[in-house]
Design a binder for these strands. Structure first.
Lengths: 300, 300
DNA sequence: TTGAATGTTTTTAATAATAAAATACAATAA
DNA sequence: TTATTGTATTTTATTATTAAAAACATTCAA
């Protein structure tokens, strides 16, 4: 079999659902209507209808399709759920890279990796091609792919780029009018930081999540597809490392919270110079954490 | 045939070249050495050697491979040159999009487009997947790809992003030490601008090239893989449009040259505020030109 | 004996072939 | 006419296949 008949099976079960809303002797909609309803081509609908005729669920004469018996559970076709979304693949793959300390210059075997993540080889190829735009992996001359990141240079360049994007976001943010929702959001964010700071001894683990929220709040101000694409990757990598590097976690997080609060206060006071200064300081701390965690894991 | 035997054919001709450096009765290098020399696997070398035996070019006995006749031109295998590089594909494809005013939301037919650019369908798929990271094209739910850009929003977001990157480059540039080559390069660049300005009536067409040089000179200061990836796309699109939009070209170019000169002078004086101001003004002009040329071509 | 070289087998990736689905076009009946 | 169905064509997703790479085993010469 060349293509899977997943679309057929889904449509088959979909038509059963539609029939279940009817009574025996009711007439079915025309092919094109059914096709639109199930968001597939008429070709598929026609195959499904033929299958229904064979199962004596419907009777076709001319242009009238009559339901002659209610379909039941036994009529349903089984569907193997093994297609994960491209977004999920991205998360899973990056998590795998980071979690298992896959070293740089590892040759990635498309066949094996595609099995591991239960996707078709060509889906993975497509995905790899996308990632290669970020310099994380590269095509090899003799075929296949090679993992380039996370090297020290990758981390440095990623951090630097992050600074560029986030400082830009801050410049935009500070110019927003008084009635923009961002200001109340920042107030709330500040409260959350203070709350965590009060219970830092018990809850210092929660900082990872708060850090992500902090950066998202600031960066979402810039509505730009290019920026957003990068933020996805940046956020994933930094967020993962925060969870990962456990050395001096408590004191590290406490310091970071204070940096956040300073930045938020500067933003609320619309002090651009100070806000940028504070943000840069925090981003630099973050960069050092990322670098040191790479060294701890013998990467880079 | 599943895979092409292009590697075999290239290695075959490669080995002929190697043999031509020998004399009759000379011995050939071991398989593994030949494999390294031609940068292919031993498997290929072995097939080529077998082919050479059949053609009575060499004689193999045990581990000695003796040249028994000089190979000639007739022995060479023909190689069909129709593989273009991935970089070339990128340039060709974007040029096609821009040159033929391919409208947004066009459904791209992988089979047809791959023939048009004479690449394998899966190569194109891979390439499309990469481009989709920039939001230029998208995967369709029912299969295939759809062209999203160049819409007005795409152009606006691209321009805005360009500003972020270039202003960042300027901030870095201005901090460079006196002995850095950039300062003499900027001096030269300024002279080129003045030269063109003196002969603007005759040579205003040459500005397109000068504009590209100007932006490259500034942006190359930032050594960052993410920035560089974007600059490739940005440069292609803006540069193309400059060549394209012929309305008021002379006066438009003259104004742009003056903006360039002002920026360069500010940079040479290390006046950061002024340089950023001038650069922003120029980038905004550039953005407006891009937008108006989109409207002229009924895109967006 | 040892290690470089060759022989053999297994694995992997690129492409052609193929079946499913989408689309386009033609015919028909209400 | 126009909505609907029938038929043909195009296109995509996946499988099967072949070339090439890589791994492993063996042999031979120093």
């Amino acid at each position: 079999m060349a293509r899977t008949d997943a679309v057929f099976r889904n449509s088959f079960n979909g038509l059963i659902k539609i029939c279940n809303k009817l009574k025996v002797n009711d007439k079915l909609d025309p092919e094109s209507t059914l096709a639109t309803k199930l968001d597939v081509s008429r070709t598929v609908i026609r195959s499904v209808l033929q299958a229904f005729v064979k199962l004596n669920i419907i009777k076709i004469s001319g242009r009238t399709k009559t339901l002659i018996r209610m379909p039941n559970k036994n009529d349903l076709l089984t569907i193997q759920e093994r297609t994960i979304s491209l977004g999920q693949l991205e998360t899973d793959f990056l998590n795998w890279l980071l979690h298992f300390d896959v070293p740089p210059n590892t040759i990635l075997n498309v066949t094996k990796v595609s099995k591991q993540f239960s996707v078709a080889p060509h889906t993975l190829q497509e995905f790899f091609s996308g990632l290669s735009r970020f310099g994380l992996i590269e095509r090899r001359a003799k075929g296949g792919w090679i993992l380039r990141g996370f090297t020290k240079n990758f981390a440095i360049e990623l951090s630097d780029f992050r600074v560029v994007l986030e400082i830009n976001a801050i410049r935009h943010l500070i110019k927003l009018p008084e009635n923009h929702p961002i200001w109340s959001q920042l107030g709330e964010l500040k409260n959350k930081h203070n709350d965590l700071l009060r219970n830092i001894d018990q809850n210092f683990h929660d900082f990872s999540q708060l850090d992500e929220l902090y950066h998202i709040t600031i960066n979402k101000i810039v509505k730009n597809r290019f920026v957003e694409e990068f933020q996805k990757i940046i956020s994933l990598i930094f967020h993962y490392h925060y969870q990962w590097d456990k050395t001096e976690e408590r004191s590290r997080n406490e310091a970071a919270i204070k940096e956040h609060i300073k930045t938020i206060e500067a933003l609320l006071n619309k002090d651009e110079i100070l806000a940028i200064d504070c943000a840069k300081k925090h981003l630099n701390t973050s960069k050092q954490t990322l670098l040191s965690s790479l060294i701890t894991h013998n990467l880079g």
